[in-house]
């Protein structure tokens, strides 16, 4: 019953995203083809482009034609690059995905110890310091963080070369190095979110009866925190990390501009600049679908991690 409902909800959400993405690009004032081609375009040119864009005929037929293509993984052709949208995206995806993955890894590596430390030091200086710093982390826009990182670590300390991305296949070490600063810039606000959330769930769990039982066994504080409390506190944090991934993905669209990385973000900006609607539409749809599916998977893992739900 639960799964039936959950799957239904997933499909409904996907359908709404499909509709939204389709109609968002249909409310363009006037004819999109003539908007793209400009005033001087001839009628033949316009109808040729209309056909290419799949925007001739009644609206609902347009939608079903487009949605049918999407289901078969056909996102149409880019106007600017005359290439299938999907292959364009595929060529840029590795950069964005590795940036997002790296950023998520940094987020977890830094946020988990800090969140635990803040909870353990509740009300003391370390807690206050971590709370204050995470407020700052939340407030700093990641693209500005990127600029500051370039200034400090790129230009002043010269630890990293800026604006030269080396593909993974060419030199993995240099690729990693060129992704480090942008990944940190993206991770900062996410670290702040996870730290705050983990601190709260840890403190909630510490009031539970089983903590008293664990202490009554004579376990050390570290054992009580890391084995008993953390295990329970981490389960709800998983949901937050899922949401983080979506935010990181969106943030990478901007941060790629700061560091001139040849990823999805740059492609999207080029597409927007050229009014390459099929490309923009395809990328938006793909990103939204990715976020929905990741959250679905996170929901699954959340239920799997909690034995109370898993074994029912």
């Amino acid at each position: 019953m639960y799964w039936a409902r959950k799957s239904f909800t997933l499909l409904l959400t996907l359908a709404f995203v499909l509709l939204l993405t389709f109609f968002a690009f249909r409310i363009i004032p006037g004819n999109p083809a003539s908007a793209i081609l400009g005033m001087e375009a001839s009628q033949e040119q316009i109808s040729e482009l209309e056909q290419k864009l799949g925007i001739e005929g009644p609206l609902h037929l347009q939608f079903f034609r487009w949605a049918g293509g999407v289901i078969q993984l056909d996102f149409g052709h880019s106007i600017r690059f005359s290439e299938p949208v999907l292959s364009l995206i595929a060529s840029r995806l590795p950069v964005t995905l590795s940036l997002a993955a790296m950023s998520l890894a940094i987020t977890l590596l830094v946020a988990l110890p800090l969140g635990i430390a803040a909870a353990r030091a509740r009300g003391r200086f370390a807690d206050l310091f971590i709370s204050l710093t995470s407020q700052l982390g939340l407030a700093i826009p990641s693209f500005w963080m990127g600029i500051v990182l370039i200034l400090v670590f790129g230009l002043t300390l010269k630890w990293f070369t800026v604006s030269t991305f080396v593909p993974w296949s060419e030199n993995a070490w240099l690729a990693l190095k060129s992704l480090t600063l942008p990944a940190i810039a993206l991770a900062v606000p996410q670290i702040a979110i996870v730290v705050r959330y983990l601190r709260t769930t840890m403190l909630e769990q510490m009031n539970e009866d089983y903590v008293r039982t664990a202490k009554s066994k004579g376990l050390s504080n570290a054992n009580v925190y890391y084995k008993h409390v953390l295990r329970n506190a981490l389960i709800p944090v998983v949901t937050v990390v899922g949401i983080n991934f979506g935010e990181i993905l969106a943030g990478s669209l901007v941060i790629e501009g700061v560091f001139t990385l040849p990823g999805m973000g740059r492609l999207l900006m080029t597409a927007i600049g050229n009014r390459d609607y099929p490309l923009v539409q395809g990328m938006v749809l793909l990103i939204a679908f990715t976020v929905i599916i990741i959250n679905f998977v996170v929901d699954l893992s959340y239920r799997w991690l909690d034995p109370k739900i898993r074994l029912k």
């Binding site: 539970e208 009866d209 089983y210 008293r212 664990a214 008993h228 295990r231």
Partner: peptide
């Protein structure tokens, strides 16, 4: 303790 429902760790 009094409440055996909450006195054991649910995830272990």
């Amino acid at each position: 303790f009094q409440d055996p429902m909450t006195s054991l760790n649910p995830t272990l």
